[in-house]
Amino acid sequence: MSTLTALRGPARVVVRQHRWTLWIAGGLALVAVAGMIAVALRSSHVAEVFAASDCPVNGGAGRACDVTARSYLDSMFKYRGVFDDLALGLMALPAIVSGFVAGPLIARELENGTYKLSWTQSVSPARWLTAKLAVPAVLFLAGTAVLSAGLHWARSGSDNPYASEWYTAYVFATTGLAPAAHLIFGICVGALAGLLIRRTLLALTVSAFVTGAAGVTFTYLRAGLWPRSTLTGKSLDVSSNIWWVETGHLTGDGERLSQGLCDQAVSEGDRTRCFADHDITGHYLDYHPSSHFWPLQLVETGILLALAAVAVAVAFRVLRRRTG
């Protein structure tokens, strides 16, 4: 039994109405997964060939090794760019899906009046809206999970010297729970925009903009979602794989000063006098260790799901008021 045949009621209608869009989306997802696998395998092969050459990455072992190392680094940088482009597409997916839900899925039916046919065939407005939310949520969440897992596997298996750190937007926003949370938020915002605006193009634009703006906002505010760890001292012994959030100078009474306060000092003596004039006795670093990845993910996911719940509650309330 096919998936379409197994579906009942308004969910089946939604899939049937937009089957070509869903087929295209599925095809693009398969192409993306195949591309990830191909690039990851190629990247691993290039790394193995370079390792077999016994040439150092930083050169200095003769002209032939320098050429080999440069070719290796150029190739790995190119592969990292491919992964970043795929991550950017995955980050844009919630805005695209949000626009699809707001415009073609909901606002177009309200604009053209085709929703009346469903509502007069023993399908309540609430069931109609539930189907409009459930179908894209199930299908696109499944696709997002596959793409996110594939991208994580491709990154981790490529052994790239230019690999992005865990806290960069390309990595953080495309792994863990964040992709699903942003997608659910986008779907709920799309439903609300479609019901409020009731004009296909305008609802699509507004919904995609709001969802995209939320993603950009979290990129800038993410560091403040969880308490930071702090390192202080006359010299900071900084470990790798941490997210530098803020660094600067400390005075004798613990006041924090800007890191660039004495940058204009030309000589070491001028810098020493600048430190003495401002009573700088040490330095500080606010950072997130890699162990903060999941707390940050959970807080961001919780905020997005709360906002999504508010949006969908308002959407059903608007629907009830307009349908009596």
Rank of each mutant, 00 (worst) to 15 (best):
C65L: 06
H283F: 10
L231N: 01
A308M: 07
P56H: 10
V46R: 14
W119C: 07
G194I: 08
V189R: 02
R127N: 15
T175D: 09
R271W: 12
G150L: 09
R16P: 04
Y284P: 05
R222F: 08
E165M: 12
G27R: 07
S156L: 13
P179Q: 04
L319T: 10
L201A: 14
D279K: 07
Y170H: 12
G35C: 08
A145T: 15
A173C: 00
S258H: 08
M91G: 05
A92I: 15
T247L: 01
L105S: 10
C262S: 11
R127C: 02
T130P: 00
H152D: 14
D74F: 04
G27K: 08
R8L: 10
V206R: 01
P104C: 06
S240Y: 11
L141Q: 06
R273E: 04
A154C: 07
L73G: 04
I184N: 04
S124K: 06
L139S: 08
G143I: 15
V39H: 02
C188Q: 04
S43L: 11
I187A: 08
C65N: 06
L204S: 11
E300H: 03
V312I: 15
G224C: 05
F218L: 14
T5S: 13
G99H: 13
W166G: 05
P227F: 03
A214P: 06
T200I: 10
G143A: 13
C55N: 07
R8M: 02
R8S: 13
V82I: 15
H18C: 07
A191E: 03
W226L: 04
K116C: 07
A149Y: 08
R12Y: 06
V216K: 02
